[in-house]
Nucleic acid binder design. Structure first.
Length: 478
DNA sequence: TGTGCCGGGCG
DNA sequence: CGCCCGGCACA
């Protein structure tokens, strides 16, 4: 759907101004450019839309939007569209925001966007979305606190997909956990809307808040992982986050810029994201155990893999919705597995970038109870060995021209994904054990069709430069 | 056997 | 660097 594109875009556009990178081969991609371009500025609006949660936030958004909008200030009209989109997406794309790198498949062209920009976006949106989600949630039947009430047309409200809601029981289960660990957490600060029962209110709030964030968190691991895992640790709480934020920045310049950036922007969010539960999307297609962290991702997966739709169109008729379900995953458990692999680092498989030591500590120690709360989830997770437990796919072209998506796939084997990891692991030498990818191993071939296949030899000029040079495809990353 | 892309060479 | 391509690993 376009909405997706937009969303994704937003991320891109946001950070960089969304230059449609087709610059690559000007004119070659013409056909697609229009679409992309169109969406490219859309982002801005979306972005800020999502962000809104506190009045102040809104303001910020505006600023950003305008500035970022790269001159295209879409104007109200667009904005509205965006809103719709966003909301809508809540359902399909979900709060995702995610990471979805603009899936090249779905939205060609989007793939290669501005490098850094795209990345950062992804991350960022998630958070925003999370917030967004929060704001919406209320609308869905709960009290809406003040700030939340945004000028969102009620009509937008969406889709009570069973997905989010379903988690209620789980939430409660988790509540205890969360409660204990979160007592100190800033999460509480966040104005959440919850039906409220006097006694339970506190944790519920927390829960809902975190939950929402996690939900929106489908954006996946990068950020969520990090923050999520941190949940349980008392000592950690705010400090940890901040500290980790800082370190994050220092960490990896390149890739992380995006990520770190994300955090920086998201700032408030990380703190909120205490909950260790993460919503994942599981493909229900027979024999397909694919679990992705983003609804968009799963949709895309279903669309392309099972429904046989092709990449070119981002369009979604919604059919995918029938083939995947939302599940909650205890990130702690995931992390645990991951962390177990590496004492000092978030693990290879783990959330790539950012985790600086401080955080890792937390994660390491904390994840003990692991799967306790989620049966199905846990089962899923438990199936895989720690190393494989969580498969995070980093979809990004190596240089980041493409927005990347990190999806957590359980059951999938974590492959080397060297290039990506390299960056990630830089900081954590110890990770090696888990990383068989190590150096020297070849990057596993991506499943996605590459330019060659997509365009064929005849249209070689339409290939991305990398493909033309026989390098790793930048357009269709996996 | 086709494809993806690493590694290396050339300008 | 940008551009190619030999050649290898995979599927």
């Amino acid at each position: 759907m376009e909405s997706k594109c937009i969303l994704e875009k937003s991320s891109v556009g946001t950070s960089v101004g969304g230059v449609v990178d087709f610059n690559y081969r000007p004119g070659r991609y013409n056909s697609r450019v229009p679409a992309v371009a169109k969406s490219s500025f859309t982002p801005g609006p979306i972005f800020y839309k999502c962000v809104t949660d506190g009045g102040s936030t809104a303001a910020v958004k505006n600023e950003r939007t305008s500035s970022v909008g790269s001159g295209h200030s879409p104007g109200v009209g667009i904005l509205q569209n965006v809103e719709k989109t966003v909301i809508r997406d809540q359902k399909d794309i979900g709060s995702t925001g995610i990471l979805k790198r603009a899936s090249p498949t779905l939205c060609l062209g989007m793939g290669r966007q501005l490098p850094g920009s795209s990345i950062s976006l992804d991350i960022r949106n998630p958070g925003k979305q999370a917030e967004l989600a929060n704001s919406f949630r209320p609308a869905q039947g709960q009290n809406v606190p003040q700030a939340e009430i945004q000028p969102l047309p009620s009509s937008h409200i969406p889709v009570p997909r069973n997905r989010n809601p379903s988690g209620h029981a789980d939430k409660e289960v988790m509540a205890a956990t969360v409660l204990t660990s979160l007592s100190t957490s800033p999460l509480v600060l966040y104005p959440s809307s919850v039906p409220t029962e006097p006694a339970s209110k506190t944790w519920k709030e927390v829960l809902s808040t975190s939950y929402s964030s996690s939900t929106s968190g489908n954006w996946s691991w990068d950020a969520s992982d990090q923050s999520v895992p941190s949940t349980p640790s008392p000592p950690l709480s705010k400090d940890a986050n901040t500290g980790f934020l800082h370190s994050a920045q220092g960490d990896d310049a390149s890739e992380d810029v995006s990520e770190s950036t994300h955090f920086m922007f998201e700032d408030p969010i990380p703190r909120k994201r205490k909950n260790s539960m993460k919503v994942m999307f599981k493909c229900l297609w027979k024999n397909c155990e694919k679990v992705l962290s983003t609804s968009s991702g799963i949709q895309r997966h279903i669309r392309t893999v099972h429904l046989g739709r092709n990449s070119d169109s981002d369009y979604s008729d919604g059919e995918e919705d029938f083939y995947y379900s939302e599940i909650e995953v205890n990130m702690d458990s995931l992390t645990e597995g991951l962390s177990s692999l590496t004492p000092t680092s978030p693990t290879t498989a783990g959330p790539p970038p950012i985790f600086p030591p401080p955080l890792s500590d937390v994660s390491r120690t904390e994840y003990v109870g692991v799967n306790g709360s989620q049966s199905h989830t846990s089962s899923l997770l438990s199936q895989s060995a720690p190393s494989t437990l969580c498969h995070i796919r980093t979809d990004h072209a190596y240089q980041g021209p493409v927005t990347h998506v990190r999806t957590v796939c359980i059951g999938e084997k974590r492959q080397p994904a060297i290039g990506t990891h390299a960056a990630v692991n830089k900081n954590h030498p110890l990770v090696t054990p888990a990383t068989k990818s190590a150096a020297g191993t070849r990057k596993p071939r991506g499943e996605a069709k590459k330019c060659r296949k997509v365009y064929g030899m005849e249209k070689r000029d339409m290939w991305c430069t990398a493909c033309r040079w026989k390098k790793a495809c930048q357009r269709f990353t996996d």
